[in-house]
């Protein structure tokens, strides 16, 4: 059997990427400022992590407008949901296994 620690998703090593996924898994969609309000992070840093998650097909970016202002929103993908949930399971396993 694989050790729980090996089941952790390398992509979720980052506190910021974990934050983004946690927020998106319980919300239909969020915009950049919503995420910034939840995670202690600079704009540039947040944008980079969003890009990484998007490239891995874990989140989806929707470009929209409110009036003339751009409003980009993010949603979690099915693949992202599955990956994040198994990451959570692995974390729980680490806590429960070692005693």
């Amino acid at each position: 059997m694989k050790k729980a620690i090996e089941q952790l998703n390398k992509l979720f090593d980052s506190r910021i990427r974990i934050g983004i996924m946690s927020a998106l898994i319980v919300n239909e969609s969020l915009n950049f400022n919503d995420l910034k309000g939840l995670i202690d992070v600079t704009d540039g840093n947040l944008a980079t992590h969003i890009k990484t998650l998007e490239e891995n097909n874990y989140i989806k970016v929707h470009k929209g407008f409110i009036g003339k202002k751009t409003n980009t929103t993010y949603t979690i993908t099915r693949a992202g949901e599955v990956a994040f949930k198994s990451h959570l399971k692995a974390l729980e396993k680490i806590i429960n296994d070692i005693n």
């Binding site: 620690i5 506190r15 974990i18 934050g19 946690s22 927020a23 898994i25 319980v26 919300n27 969020l30 919503d34 939840l38 995670i39 959570l88 974390l91 729980e92 680490i94 806590i95 070692i98």
Partner: peptide, 25 residues
């Protein structure tokens, strides 16, 4: 070592729970 992994995981889960709650309520 194992205890340390456990603590880190526990903290991570707490953070995740916190963000889930703050983002939806």
């Amino acid at each position: 070592m194992q205890q340390e992994e456990k603590n880190i995981s526990l903290q991570t889960l707490k953070d995740i729970h916190g963000i889930m709650e703050r983002s939806s309520r």
